[in-house]
């Protein structure tokens, strides 16, 4: 009959209207700052450098692989030198330009020393575009416990792998007399 299409349409919208008040699946908007959706584990945002105990001893050995692999080339690394000028296995400068970084996670995959991982932190607004968004080494470094908190399953895998490697290197080192052991872990 003529007017029924109109009434059917209105019935749908009024049901929607009352659903938002009554039923659970009516309203699904999460009111962002107060309530948050838990991030998925594999969510990647800007990279972080990881250290075990002390922030000075980063896992990163400044091997420059991630800087080469990074598609937009936003990582700059300078190797640290000790007093006599001999290069150390620590980055003296490790900058990531967050305005350029596109969170692709390639540095995380290519890093042989498990030193750089993608973080979940996304509220990174700044007032100044130039130096505030170029993250220095200090701002990038996070303890390993933080990584275990945000990505537990990956952390467990990595820890097992690292433990196995450690035992393998320890076995290799044991037959050969121990020389000056570097911090290679």
């Amino acid at each position: 009959m003529w007017g029924t299409g109109v009434l059917k349409g209105m019935a749908v919208t009024i049901k929607n209207f009352f659903d938002t008040y009554t039923s659970k699946n009516g309203i699904f908007t999460v009111e962002y700052p107060e309530k948050r959706l838990p991030e998925k584990e594999r969510f990647r945002n800007f990279p972080i450098l990881v250290y075990d105990e002390k922030p000075e001893e980063l896992r990163c050995v400044a091997c420059d692989i991630c800087a080469k692999e990074c598609p937009p080339k936003c990582i700059t690394i300078v190797k640290a030198k000790d007093a006599q000028g001999k290069p150390l296995k620590q980055p003296e400068v490790f900058d990531i330009d967050f305005t350029v970084c596109m969170n692709c996670g390639i540095c995380e995959e290519t890093c042989p020393f498990d030193a750089i991982y993608m973080d979940h932190e996304f509220e990174l607004a700044e007032y100044d575009r130039m130096d505030a968004l170029i993250y220095k080494k200090e701002r990038l470094s996070r303890p390993w416990t933080h990584f275990e908190k945000i990505r537990p399953t990956d952390a467990k895998e990595i820890n097992e792998r690292r433990a196995k490697d450690a035992t393998k290197t320890a076995a290799a080192v044991k037959p050969a007399p121990p020389q000056a052991s570097n911090q290679q872990t």
Partner: peptide, 13 residues
């Protein structure tokens, strides 16, 4: 508010 609620969203709050 009403048109928001019809479209399953909250409207200005």
């Amino acid at each position: 508010k009403v048109v928001g609620r019809i479209q399953n969203r909250i409207g200005p709050n």
